[in-house]
Design a protein around this nucleic acid. Structure first.
Lengths: 158, 158
DNA sequence: TATTGTTATACTCTATAACTATA
DNA sequence: TATAGTTATAGAGTATAACAATA
């Protein structure tokens, strides 16, 4: 059941073992953030992946697909269709690099930078709403804690 | 690039716009937690979904598939194969309910409860490691904040 | 008519192997 | 030989429509 459509009959499921894990709360909160972000980006016809790629290309003009894949924690083959989509919509361009003709320099077009401006504004407003009941100090504590968790994740995926 | 295999050449990608969003840090931390959890569950041949289902069935003996789907935020059709898998491995049983012959009462078997005990212990140890540099008070602040975020997520998925 | 569990299906995200062209 | 980008493919996870059995 989605959070937004809970019925009044209250199933009262006991999830105390799961609740004992911070990861469980993290997952549920992230699901909400993600769902809201997807809705926020929908009017701009962007998904999380295409949005993230656009932002990184705007702010790192000329980077390669490999660098972008690294920054996004996405395998290179999966990045291809993301970049394809942004290119087809004329939000970015792929330019050959003369010094290394294997790589592309990814650059945002004017149209891409304009979409970037609009979406960042919308996403900022959306996040402000989600965090409206959490004070600035607590937000900073959360960010620091998230970094500590990341630094402990040594086992990783591969 | 995976966190565990970063090369020393330091691409120095600028992600300041993304960093401005708590959701970005949440996502990256959750990815680490999730990757570690997947590794932790692998020796038990459980995925996050089958693990969560097993835990909820053990602690809510007799619940129906619909109730479980609600609790897990999973669509009922997708829960079927999860329950199928647990049943085939004889970790749970599906029992017909005499008062409502449409539903199944899901119950853990002895084998299921034993696997539950072992996995909860392993997951507890794994989480303790991930959170070892975050004090108890901060952990509670995080949990409260995650609940606040969830309560703000009114737009939801559907 | 509504609900439970089910089947079929489709879409997104993710992961790996193998190819090409360049270096 | 090594790397950048690509293709093909396969596996998860997720979502909806439609059906049979039951209420």
């Amino acid at each position: 059941m989605k959070i937004s459509e809970q019925k009044s009959k209250a199933p009262e499921i006991n999830d105390k073992t799961l609740q004992a894990f911070v990861g469980y709360h993290l997952k549920r909160a992230f699901n909400v953030v993600q769902a809201d972000l997807i809705e926020t980006l929908k009017p701009f016809e962007l998904r999380m992946l295409t949005y993230t790629a656009l932002v990184l290309i705007v702010e790192n003009s000329g980077l390669s697909q490999s660098q972008l894949a690294d920054a996004m924690d996405v395998e290179r083959p999966n990045l291809v269709i993301i970049v394809d989509e942004l290119e087809q919509r004329e939000l970015i361009s792929r330019e050959r690099v003369v010094t290394d003709r294997r790589t592309y320099a990814l650059k945002a077009t004017l149209k891409g930078r304009r979409l970037f401006d609009k979406t960042v504004e919308a996403v900022t407003a959306h996040e402000r709403l989600l965090l409206s009941s959490i004070d600035q100090e607590t937000q900073e504590i959360i960010i620091q804690a998230m970094h500590l968790i990341q630094s402990k994740g040594v086992r990783g995926k591969a």
